[in-house]
Structures are given as structure tokens and as C-alpha cells.
Write a protein that binds this DNA or RNA. Structure first.
Lengths: 391, 391
DNA sequence: TTTGGCACTCGGAGTTAACGAGTGCTAAAA
DNA sequence: TTTTAGCACTCGTTAACTCCGAGTGCCAAA
């Protein structure tokens, strides 16, 4: 059972450890945090906190260090989310300039900012586009033998890809092909489009079948490629700035894991489909549960920003990252289509600050995406009338 | 003056040091490399090599370590370039698959292979496109307010960019605009195209000026963006695999420098405009010079592959990288338009092997680019007749 | 010119001792 | 019942010291 004083002590220990990276002792604690009791009292409390699983001792004669459970409780119960400073807000906003007209750029840029603001490596995954639908497909002749396929997905996402085509194919053929595919398939979910559907759609096009098939195949690949989940990792080098990675065997296993793109991407995207946070610390003390729930209700940020998620230490089920924490938030392209942006680092993180930063960056990113979607809208424009001209 | 025996000893020392990363002593050397003389003799030779500047002592009672000049001599005089093993060749070739239809992809992929093959971080810069010319520009309506600008440069390079446009603009307008820009500006060098030239070119287009100007501006930005030099860095994490970077202060300063994109890109691209390698070791002994030159003439790889370049230690003028070596080769998109691909790591490198690898990868990349440029050419294709249909 | 011999250097590994921050426990005080 | 002062004990860290051995430089003999 966490009494108020225990919480206070737990918070103080974590706050301090997070900054200094050294086990914190009872004497130091009362001195520095004016706890108003003697070190002996604190020692007793700490001993109990340890028994409850919130703290650990590196060895007998050292101070205490938070455990996974300790961090978890800190985040769920004790977290004090301060607003991001105006300076930081300005800095973050200034990173997004007006020349970024693609969601991809915005998202990648967010990863940059996030890494820079937090001094940790950042990760972003693109949304899962497979259940969005095809809106347009254009095939643009670049030169004989070479064309550009432009695929537009329903939320306004544009992807393109160079293809090689038979020399015999003319611009008009491409036009025809793409128009007919678009006519027949636009509106279909991406994951329902197959080579067969496409071939069927274009069967009447008056182009020799051998040539046609090659173009269709490339078009198909382009569509499939559009639904690939993309992962960006930024700022891995900042890892070395943190003392837990002086031990370069750790740093190495971290980097090795992180660079196996598939693994992390898989993990994150699987995660994305969940929408509830982990259950809190496992406890079957009803009183404690009640208290946790109450606190949760009272933490406004959890309501205002239900999108952030924290995984601590063992909660991350990827080998090589058991000593890490992973903080992410979901950004949205539409209400249904969301990706995830986050940082990863040692468990010893300034959770409050980092969560605030990530929330704010995420918020800004959402804004930017919305603004993008809302179309051209410059200040110097006379945009009194709103147009609804659909093609 | 480097006698044959001195060379032999220098080579042995470097060969050994490069592998074991430990100062090599005289006794060990005669044992292992069967030099056929006593350790005392070798000691004398080593002492002289040190006086000549080819070797250094970490401290009195340690063995010798190569100096920058030592490595330089090794590369210029002693290098033994073995062909890349068949296994490696196969591996490298298998990295390039048939679905990469853009030079950018090929180049980036080369960086991956290179890093993987050498176990060092790799760097690539794109060519300087500013003195290539504009070939095509297309503006494709995606939806009201949003369009895709596709810029094709003379060597067949395609770049595109989303832009936002006034809602009033229609597909036909875009067509008109892009066609007229293309008509008037195609063939012009990129760096001669300015906002003014573009505006002048499009002055007769029957679109309200305010709207037109916005589109022109975006088109201009797109063209300018196409000439940006791009830099890719891959595999920085492999740095930690090398003992010189255990000292993470080194690793950090390295990574910090490398991640200041502007700096390295600037350095590499400036370098690209040079086409001669550094002068050899500074010596004014005419005999020595003569010998160096002769050796150089006799090193066939320097002739066959004049494109690779090595910078060792202090020869790199970027702060933070004084302890590194930088090996690069020039890949070509056309004979005039070249970029650079390379690896960077500690001075202690297996130069012979790495240069071979880089040469081979570079060669493969050139092949792939050529093949791309030659257009569609599948095996199952009946490509008996060669077409020359220009648009 | 080469080589065996020998004194000398110096970093690294291992040992020991002192230090001190921190704990746990007990008994007295509040 | 809770808090606190006191004290013995633990244990990692640091510094000083020693020893070892790989390696050098130099000299005198081959």
C-alpha cells in the first residue's frame, strides 16, 4: 500500500536518479528534498518500497534504484506533466516549414525534432495503408521505356515509383491503362487489389497483351509498394550521450536490434492496433487498485492525450531492449489512419519532460497534417470563398 | 630511402597491425613473417623507419605503429589489390534487384552493401546536378489545391515534389503552364534557371497572374530542389565494432561530425571536383620520388580504376576526423556527371581489401546505372529491334 | 653489416589497504 | 506506535605498490 509519504519518497528517488544516474541514499534524500523526517525513517520506507517491488539495490551498500515497477508507478501515479516551454514550442514549430507538402516529410521531420528535443533516438512508423483505398493511379511517360506511376490513396497520400516499360508503349497507351484501372478500382481497399483484379480491370484495353501485362505488373507492384509500412530511425548517435551506454556491449546490442528494421517495425505496428495501455502494476490489493484508478481519472493528460504509451524495461518484448524504455504517441492522418512516433532510450528517462515533448510534437504534427490536407491556404491569398470542386 | 627490406618490414608491420590493432614488436615480426634476419636487425630497420616518419611508438617499451605517412606509403607503394572473391561478388550483385528503377535507389543500396561488406560506415553523395540541364517538367493535378511536379534532368534523372496550388487552378492550366515552361527552358542548365527566367517563359499563359505566379514559384522551388546534393550515411552503428572507438569520446566526436550533413557533404563534393589524388608522401629525395612514380605507373589498378581516393588521418581536414581514413570512389551517371561513394573508419583499415571491395561495388553500381539508362530490357522480351523513338 | 647479449623502460595486471557512502538493526525518545 | 540516534557491517571505489614481461636501444663480437 503506497502511503502518501512513500509516494513522495518514490518520486524523489526517481526524479533524482533520472538526473544523476546514481543510486540514491537515504541521507542524501532527506537533505536534498527536505523531507522533514530523519534518514532512518526514510530508510525504513525505502526498505518497504523495496519489498513492494518499486525499488532495487545494485548491492548492499549502495543506495536504491527504481525498478520497472517503480517507473511504472511513477508514470501512472506520480507523473507531473508540465507544459512545454514557450522556447521549446517555438523551436519545434520552426522545424516545420512551409515547403513540406508531403505527409512523409512532415513525419520524418517530426522524428528529427523529437530526437533533437529529447536527446534520444527516435522512431516513426507510417500508418498501415492496407485498409485505405485507392483513389487515383496515373502513369506518366518519362521517356520511351520509362514511366512514373503515381498512386494516390484515399487520405490524400501520394506515392510514386519509376517503372520500366516496353519501348513500344506510348503515352496514350499509358493514359488509357491508368484511366481504366482507376475507373474500375478506385475506391477499393488496397489489400483487396491483386494482380488478378488489375488484369481483369484492364482486359479490354487495346494494347498487345504481352506489353500490357508488363505495365500492369509494374502498376500492381507500385500499388503494393504504396502499402508498405515505413520506418524511420533518427539520431541513433545520441545514444552514446547517455551513461548506460558507455558499456558499449549494451550500445551494440541496442543498435543491432534497432537496425533490424523488420523487427521494430513489426513490433510497433502490432502495437498500433492496440488502443489500451498496459494494465497498471500487478496488484490484487483492492484498495491500491482503487487508488490507481482514481489517480488515472484525475490525470487530465491521460484524457486529453490518450495516445501516448510507455513501455518500460521488461514490458518491451524485444530481446536486446529489455533495459530500455519506449515512449510513443499516435499521430493521425485521418481519425482512422494513424502512425506512431516515439523515442527509445534507457529506462532512466525524464519521463515527464519527454512525454510532454512527444505530446506537443505529436500535436504539432497532427496540426500540420491537417493543414496540409485542408489544401492551399496562404496568408496573402484572398481565400474568402471556399471551393468544393471535385474532379 | 626505402630499401626493399624496409618496405618488406613496413608492409609486414602494417599488415599485422591492421588485423590485430596492437603495436608490433621486432621479435614477433621475425617469428611470424619469416624475415630471415634477427630481431636486432629488424629493430635497427624499424628505428630507421621511425626516423623517416613511417612508424611511431605509442611509448618507449611498446612495438611500432604505422604513422599517416606509413599508411600513405603502404597505399602508394605496397598495396596489393587482390580481386574480390567470387562469393563476395555474388553477394554484392545479389543486393541489386530488378525492382530498383531509380538511380537514387541504386546509389543508396550501394551504400548499404558497402557498409555491410566493409563493416564501416559508408557515405554517398549524389552528383552535382546544377550543371546538368532541364529536360522535362510536368505538373500533375492530384486534387484541387494539390499537384505533383515531376522534373526530369538531362541524364534521365527524375525528381518529384508535391506542391500546393490555388484551388482555382485546373488540370488544363497546369498542363499549359508546364508545357510552356518545358518548351522554353528545356535544355537550359539548371543553375541558369531562375524565378525570373521561369516567369518570363510563362508570361503569356492565360491564367490570372496571381495564381500563375504561385504555381511558377512552386515549379521553381521544385527545380532548385532537384539540384540539391544529397548525402546518405549508412551503417554508422558498425563503428562500435572497431576497437579504436571503444573510447567513446572518439566515437562521439566522430558521429557528431558525420551527422552535420552540410560539412561532410560540402567536403565530399568539393573533393569531387578535384580529379588528382594527393601528392605522395612529402619527400625531396629525388630517388625516392622516382621510385614512387614508377611504382605508381606499375600499379595497374591505379590505371584501371583511377577513381578511388584515399585520405588518411591528417589529410582529412575536417575536425573530429583526424584519426580516420576515408576511402572513396567516383561512380558515374554519365561521363560528366559523377557522385562519390565511400567508407570512413579508423586509419587502421585493411586498405587492400576495402579498396577492392569499393572498386567492385562501384563498378557494379556503374553497370547497374548504365543498364537502367539503356531502358527496358527483360530477358523474356523479344527485343530484336532497337527503337529510337524520341518524343 | 648482422647478431647475441644486456640493461633499461614502461604499461598492465594483481594485491592490499584505506575510505566512505550506504544499509539494517536496536534501543531510546516522542 | 512511530520516529530517531547510534552503531556495526557491507562492499564498491580509489590509490599506492609491486611484479611481470614485452619491447627497445646500444654495444661489442661475429
Amino acid at each position: 500500500m503506497l502511503t502518501e509519504r512513500k509516494r513522495q519518497i518514490l518520486r524523489a528517488i526517481i526524479d533524482d536518479y533520472v538526473i544523476h544516474a546514481e543510486p540514491v541514499g537515504s541521507r542524501y534524500l532527506v537533505d536534498k528534498y527536505k523531507l522533514g523526517v530523519s534518514s532512518a525513517t526514510v530508510r525504513n520506507e525505502m526498505s518497504e518500497l523495496e519489498e513492494l517491488g518499486y525499488l532495487e539495490k545494485p548491492h548492499t551498500s549502495a543506495g536504491r534504484v527504481p525498478s520497472d515497477k517503480g517507473y511504472r508507478a511513477y508514470i501512472d501515479l506520480l507523473l507531473d506533466l508540465k507544459p512545454v516551454s514557450q522556447t521549446d514550442q517555438d523551436k519545434i514549430e520552426s522545424f516545420f516549414n512551409d515547403h513540406m507538402n508531403e505527409v512523409t516529410d512532415l513525419v520524418r521531420q517530426s522524428a528529427n525534432v523529437l530526437s533533437e528535443q529529447t536527446n534520444f533516438p527516435s522512431l516513426v512508423i507510417s500508418p498501415r495503408y492496407s485498409d485505405t483505398s485507392l483513389e487515383q493511379i496515373k502513369i506518366l511517360m518519362i521517356e520511351p521505356g520509362k514511366a512514373l506511376v503515381v498512386v494516390v490513396l484515399s487520405p490524400g497520400i501520394v506515392k510514386d515509383r519509376m517503372i520500366r516499360i516496353p519501348h513500344e508503349i506510348k503515352q496514350d497507351d499509358l493514359h488509357l491503362i491508368s484511366r481504366i484501372i482507376e475507373q474500375k478500382l478506385s475506391g477499393q481497399k488496397l489489400d483487396q487489389i491483386t494482380l488478378i483484379t488489375i488484369s481483369a480491370a484492364a482486359e479490354d484495353v487495346p494494347v498487345p497483351e504481352a506489353l500490357l501485362n508488363q505495365v500492369l505488373f509494374e502498376a500492381y507492384v507500385s500499388i503494393k509498394q504504396a502499402e508498405n509500412i515505413e520506418l524511420y530511425i533518427q539520431g541513433t548517435h545520441r545514444l552514446l550521450n547517455h551513461p548506460e551506454f558507455q558499456e558499449l556491449t549494451l550500445a551494440r546490442s541496442f543498435l543491432d536490434t534497432i537496425h533490424q528494421e523488420g523487427i521494430v517495425a513489426g513490433y510497433m505496428s502490432e502495437w498500433e492496433s492496440m488502443n489500451a495501455d498496459l494494465e497498471l502494476t500487478e496488484t490484487n490489493n483492492p484498495e491500491e487498485i482503487e487508488q490507481l484508478e482514481r489517480t488515472r481519472r484525475e490525470q487530465p493528460y491521460l484524457k486529453e492525450n490518450p495516445s501516448y504509451m510507455v513501455r518500460i524495461g521488461q514490458e518491451i518484448t524485444l530481446k536486446g531492449l529489455e533495459e530500455c524504455s519506449f515512449i510513443t504517441a499516435a499521430y493521425k492522418i485521418t481519425n482512422k489512419i494513424t502512425g506512431r512516433i516515439g523515442v527509445i532510450g534507457p529506462r532512466r528517462m525524464e519521463y515527464g519532460n519527454i512525454i510532454s515533448q512527444i505530446n506537443f510534437i505529436n500535436y504539432t504534427l497532427d496540426q500540420q497534417i491537417m493543414e496540409l490536407a485542408s489544401g492551399y491556404d496562404r496568408k496573402e491569398d484572398i481565400n474568402g470563398k471556399e471551393k468544393e470542386e471535385q474532379a
